[in-house]
Design a protein around this nucleic acid. Structure first.
Lengths: 193, 193, 193, 193
DNA sequence: AATGAATGAGCATTCATTCAT
DNA sequence: TATGAATGAATGCTCATTCAT
């Protein structure tokens, strides 16, 4: 089946990219790991860069659709946000190679970062952004904060958890950190007066 | 003078790396922009990778020494942390090419990230970490939070500001965001009950 | 066919090496003369040095197998030795470029000479050595001479004929010299008393 | 003194060439070993190739003048020839680096070989050639042999002794072989009838 | 659809030589 | 004479991509 082979190539690519980095990975390595001929890769992808894009696109749309699905039944914005953090960390924590590609390899080019930003990432950030605005309307979040700034800050905090986890050689569980991050961001770090 | 030429190469490299990315930059580009012969680069650096390392090392040690200098006269930990955020954003906001190299190019390889992490970055994070612990001892920060987690979260938040700023094509001032980030992190985003 | 292309590369390399010397020959020259792309060379050989080795290996094993084949039916050791000299000079005399590579290019590095010596050359010298010992046992050669020294001397004499022939721009026939060399070595140069 | 520095460069070059081969030797290595600056080499030699030529020229003219000097008082041609063989092997046996350069490095280019041949080598060979003719006139050498062929053969035999000695890592004394070579060449290897 | 042999553009690095001091 | 920093031409090898089968 067509989708199967395409899938196999993507899976191989994630492994290879994670291990060697995008620029040091050879198309031949990816093909070899997928047990197909080099040329076959080009029947499913335009080229090496297209593979990277596809990894991102596929994962990002999963992130988004799953995120939307999981939060639609949640009423309270603070619980929604917590769920988003959990999903993010669960998902990347469960697929270490994918996490490496997302945190490290995808960041290696401004060109890619811009496309990355323009495409799914903006949408993902928007979900967070809307949730925060919703929380402000619900009265659960402070209204004197810029919701977009909060969204970026929230994303940056979670993102850093993933990066640190990767660099630590993944010696601990990632998902449980969601609760801690949310706790800090919700309550702030200043001691109550 | 020797230091001048080395400096000129580093400056050229920052510009070239920022524009094209590390892997797409040619040593000839760097040499050309520095108005020296290709071979001269190798009188000052071991090779292309050594240039990237040197950019990182030099900048990181500046970050750290300046950071330490500026916070040593500040007593209160919350003000220290605010000053660190300001410095970070001022510094990268003032040199856009350097910011691009730091946010994007240096992240392109796990190999580099590990060295990056092991070297100056860990020290930088430690300054933040110690400051937070100090704040907890002073009673200005909550004691029920993991200070290392807070440090990472703090760094991730600031770092995301820089990344977003770069991807936005630097259409706004970066430094003023320090205050906003601190405000959110200090007070939290939950509305007071 | 695979063997054909490999063969074509070897033939081109012999010509190019003969004309310009190993170090002054470019892989592109070899590929160009073989009418293939530069990269194709690397599908058949590990690199430039591997080509030189292969030329040597192939030729040396031909020398040895043909030598053994031709002398096995000869009974008398003196006739065997004469046949070896003839074969050596016929073979190199018939392929001038190969002769140049063998006499000149292969000698340009101690490193190669040692491998050369260790590999086929030792075997070739051994054939000569054994033939001389055989002749001593047959009573046809003097028993008071060190047979290994004689073998080296015999090889050195023939080898010098080839080198001189090359340097003379091959203006005469090489093969007929075999008889003359053997005549001198067999009878010695001292006048009979 | 000018000659001293020139001499020092030549000595360094012989060592460096012997160890790494002509093409793999750097002018900087030679200069470094001679304890002078790289540029100074060019005050005494036209370039790298000129150094190689000079090594050859100087050594060859020493060979020739010393050879002539030593044999002029010898009357009998066979004793002259023996003395030449001794000198050749003594000289190279006493300076291993020089021997390596002569046997291996100088042979690495047809271009050089031709100049080598045209220059001193022809003269050296001529000394041998004349000595053999002299011996034929004296009645000490057979008159039915081509004296030039014998000269080449004689040189080839001695030359091979040196090459073998080098490749053996110089584990034995070279000079004593002169007697053995002469013994074989004089008497021939055939058993007397 | 699949193959994999062939392609050839692309590039970091070396090092003989020069020349201002 | 002597220096040694600077030059820049030169090249083996890689690998993404193509295309005949």
């Amino acid at each position: 089946m067509v989708a199967d082979k395409r899938e196999a190539i993507l899976r191989s690519a994630i492994k290879v990219f994670a291990r060697k980095g995008y620029f040091n990975s050879k198309v031949a390595d990816i093909a070899g790991k997928a047990k197909i001929a080099d040329g076959t890769v080009y029947l499913y992808f335009k080229g090496k860069e297209d593979i990277l894009h596809s990894i991102f696109d596929r994962t990002m749309s999963e992130f988004i659709s799953q995120g939307n699905r999981e939060i639609e039944d949640i009423t309270k914005a603070d619980e929604k946000l917590r769920r988003i953090a959990e999903l993010h960390l669960e998902k990347l924590g469960a697929d270490q190679d994918l996490a490496v590609v997302f945190q490290v390899q995808l960041r290696g080019s401004i060109k890619f970062m811009r496309e990355f930003s323009a495409a799914g990432f903006a949408e993902y950030l928007d979900i967070i952004h809307q949730t925060i605005k919703e929380g402000q309307n619900q009265g659960v979040f402070r209204k004197d904060l810029n919701p977009l700034l909060c969204a970026k800050l929230f994303f940056g905090a979670i993102d850093e958890m993933v990066t640190n986890w990767i660099l630590s050689n993944k010696r601990y569980d990632l998902a449980p950190l969601a609760g801690e991050v949310v706790k800090v961001l919700y309550g702030g770090i200043l001691a109550p007066k």
